[in-house]
Nucleic acid binder design. Structure first.
Length: 535
RNA sequence: GUCCCCAUAGCUCAAAGGAUAGAGCUCCUGCCUUCUAAGCAGGCAAUCCAGGUUCGAUUCCUGGUGGGGACACCA
């Protein structure tokens, strides 16, 4: 029985014992007891519901404990906890289930069609190190949501139209002609080799041809960078696609029709504040010179996503764009879409340090640290685990020098080492005269404390994935994997797995380790980190 | 000035309102004739300040202090 099923079961028993309605049982959940408590699971609900039931918490706890036996060893403890110990058979049975396909799927994600857009860096230069954070977040969340049963499509939005792209083209042209890029253009070194490799006929190109060429080349770079980083997008959505299909015009018409817009001083405004009261001021959709704002194009893009049938549209933005959230939410609402179907995940900026010094970065000025640079130095695994292990709201100070130097201290190796060690044990089994596929008599198994800790931790994965989805962050998973790894290393040090003298115990332990190996591989996979067989 | 985010050990991070606040790095003490020491066992060491709500607050609320970010008819 899964933990969530168990939780629902026990909750049902609590309702029955105290004759409560479904809604009356609030905050009933299984949690892991603190280390000094010798129990598998813990319930704090009796303390919380004491007022409602008008009973002493400890009394409630002991009545509850009574209702749980004889299926569980349950004990009521002051001030009102119920601590549970699971039966050995329960643990052994569940381990067999863990690797079954769909084990982690949940009903609430069934039928969800999620669109997850992230990174979406402008194609005006190589990908910046900070994009690694958004990429890690988005890719891991996509994989986690899929594991929970949702259908997920990942997307990278490419701004291949507009002023910045024009400037990029002009900067490239200037480099070809041996001149400095124009005012406000892109000064970066990366345009020089690009200019050098332009075809001969480029001398006669229009500005637009330069722009198109530069963008196409940058896009190639971005795709390559993301691939090395273990991130593949289901779709690279070009802004130009939007314009070809008249998306912005259609969006504007829809907004007008719904009475959300007005004209003032020659511009068309969206009443995000006056009509909808969800932003601090109204926003311009069409400028007085007749051109669309970026905002209108962006609304059109989001409408396009909804029109493609997604039930949930999720954007991942850096904190420098957080000011845009209210207006985008207002726009989604203005189009008559459910607010709950749209979510923006904001992650804080990555501040780059070299020692004490903060590195100011700007693509236009040409001073930045490329993602590729770090990945080349420390590897994708260390980078991704590092980024994944922080919640989106942490303000990350990233010391480039330290990150490169200290790669061996990254906890990712601690976790990967578990996988390598277990692989090695299985490799050695035959030589030690142990058959990894041999069965064992479950009734005779004696589970030692280290094994018990491992099994419990394995069952806990289900909850951890839920936490990741709830908080829109993979960091719970890195914490979990580190804890599972600690459980394993501790076990490994104390107990011999391959023992020719005791084949029964060997087979049982290999059975447990098979699950550990699978869960480590699964968890690392969700993070886009490899599970090496040898280290 | 307004708005958003953050403040936990020397450093980098965890912790559905629950029990003695967890890890990693650093420093110190032990452990490899036995399946990989990228490991194990142990030690030192922390909730910014002042109020409030609560049986219970690192967590929620209010007000400070300190730091990061945003406030365009730019994209």
């Amino acid at each position: 029985m899964k933990l969530l099923t168990l939780e629902a079961d026990l909750k049902g028993r609590a309702r029955a014992v105290f004759s409560l309605d479904e809604n009356a049982v609030v905050g009933f959940s299984l949690s892991a007891p603190p280390p000094h408590i010798k129990a598998d699971l813990s319930i704090a609900w009796p303390i919380a519901c004491a007022k409602l039931l008008k009973k002493a918490p400890l009394k409630i706890a002991s009545e509850l404990a009574h209702a749980f036996s004889p299926d569980f060893e349950a004990q009521a403890i002051a001030p009102g906890f119920v601590n549970l110990k699971l039966k050995d058979a329960f643990l052994l049975e569940e381990l067999k289930e863990l690797e079954k396909p769909g084990y982690f799927e949940r009903p609430e994600f069934k039928g969800e069609k999620v669109n997850l857009e992230f990174v979406s860096a402008n194609p005006t230069g190589p990908m910046h190190l900070a994009s690694g954070r958004g990429a890690t977040l988005g890719d891991s969340l996509a994989k986690i949501f899929r594991t929970l049963g949702a259908e997920v499509s990942t997307e990278f939005y490419v701004n291949n139209a507009g002023r910045q792209v024009e400037l990029l083209g002009q900067s490239l042209k200037a480099r070809l002609e041996g001149k400095e890029p124009p005012e406000g253009g892109y000064q970066g070194e990366y345009l020089k080799p690009l200019a050098a490799s332009l075809p001969k006929e480029a001398a006669g190109w229009t500005d637009k041809e330069f722009s198109d060429y530069a963008v196409a080349e940058m896009l190639k770079l971005h795709k390559a960078d993301m691939k090395v980083f273990g991130v593949e997008f289901d779709r690279w959505f070009l802004e130009s696609e939007l314009h070809e299909e008249g998306g912005p015009a259609r969006t504007l018409a829809a907004l007008k029709e719904r009475g959300m817009t007005y004209e003032k001083e020659g511009a068309v405004w969206l009443g995000t504040s006056t009509v909808m009261d969800s932003d601090d001021k109204d926003r311009v959709l069409v400028k007085s010179d007749g051109r669309n704002t970026y905002f209108l194009n962006d609304i059109a893009y989001h409408l396009d996503k909804f029109d493609r049938g997604f039930t949930r549209v999720i954007d991942i933005w850096g904190a420098d764009h957080h000011g845009h959230v209210p207006r985008m939410e207002a726009a989604v609402a203005a189009l008559g879409r459910e607010n709950s179907s749209f979510k923006v995940i904001i992650h804080q900026q990555v501040a780059l340090l070299r020692g004490e010094e903060i590195i100011k970065m700007s693509k236009r000025a040409g001073d930045f640290i490329a993602l590729k640079e770090l990945v080349d130095d420390v590897g994708t695994d260390a980078c991704r685990f590092f980024f994944a292990s922080r919640g989106p709201n942490t303000h990350l100070n990233f010391d480039v020098g330290l990150a490169k130097k200290k790669s061996n201290e990254n906890p990712v190796f601690y976790v990967q080492y578990v996988h390598a060690r277990i692989c090695s044990i299985f490799d050695n089994a035959a030589a030690k005269g142990v058959d990894p596929l041999a069965g064992f008599d479950e009734a005779r198994v004696v589970i030692n404390p280290e094994e018990r800790a491992i099994m419990l931790k394995l069952l806990w994965m289900e909850k951890v994935l839920g936490d990741c989805a709830r908080d829109f962050s993979p960091h719970h998973l890195t914490t979990y994997l580190t804890e599972l790894a600690a459980n394993f290393h501790s076990f490994y040090d104390k107990h011999k797995v391959l023992d020719p003298e005791n084949k029964e115990v060997s087979a049982y332990r290999l059975f447990v380790l098979r699950s550990v190996k699978a869960m480590i591989a699964r968890g690392l996979g969700l993070l886009g980190v490899s599970a090496p067989e040898r280290m």
